[in-house]
Amino acid sequence: MAKKRKVDNLLALAVLSTIVERPMHRYEIAQTMRERGKDHDMAIKWGSLYTVVQNMAKAGFLEVVGSERDGARPERVIYRITDAGRAEMVDWTRELLTTPEPEHHRFVAGLSILAVLPPADVIELLDARLDALGHAIDFARRELGDLTGSLPRLFLVESEFGLAMLEAEAAWTRSLRAELVEGTFAGLAQWQEWHDRAIPPSEVAASIERGAAEN
């Protein structure tokens, strides 16, 4: 199980992995992370950056080392990572690599209530998803190909993983669609009957519960 952290927003880890290079102010941190596509690797809410940096300073992971002013713009506070911040960054990275955690996925949410749609609609929607996944996979392959050779593989493994996950999702979705089209999906006839007879969801749920109890 993941440990409780003083600042548990993944944006904090992104900040630590960026500012470890050199002292920076918040605007430079944000610009550097955007340039490196950190928002593609983790869910980043840029509006939370100020709060996250402040919280990390309070937790002792960052410290103020000065400030600078650019013309009439507000003064910018410059932070650097502390020894505690380095230790937190390393420990958090170890945890992410070793400890599986449930991750909410919009597709899984849709699959969990698949029965509200008739099979024919689901087939059509899966076709659309496969088309979108195909475009995403093509883009990811091109992007990875463009970067391969110009960057060490060490800095591309997250892109490789992202591509592998897209390909795995496409393969699974394609398999599910094939079962629906070919009629081999278990319980397909009953699922279709629920919609043909417009059986209320409450009766469907009760029927499923009775069947589970009998088994």
Rank of each mutant, 00 (worst) to 15 (best):
A140I: 02
S67C: 07
R69M: 10
L111K: 04
L117P: 01
M1W: 07
E160G: 10
D121N: 09
E214N: 12
I208L: 14
V122M: 11
V53L: 07
Y50F: 05
P201L: 15
P23A: 05
A14C: 15
L154D: 15
L111C: 14
V52L: 01
I78F: 03
I113H: 07
E68H: 07
A57S: 13
E35H: 13
L130Q: 09
A14H: 00
D127L: 12
S207T: 10
G162A: 10
G183I: 02
H25D: 12
S175N: 08
S112A: 15
P74A: 12
A30R: 06
A12Q: 04
E103A: 10
S202N: 10
I113N: 03
W172N: 07
A109H: 05
Q192C: 12
S67N: 12
P119M: 03
R36D: 04
E182H: 01
D39S: 13
L13K: 04
L130P: 05
E95G: 08
L49G: 00
F155V: 08
E143D: 14
R106F: 10
V157S: 11
I113Y: 02
E143C: 09
W194P: 09
R94N: 13
W46T: 05
E28V: 04
M165H: 09
G110Q: 11
R129P: 01
N55I: 01
A140F: 00
K58T: 09
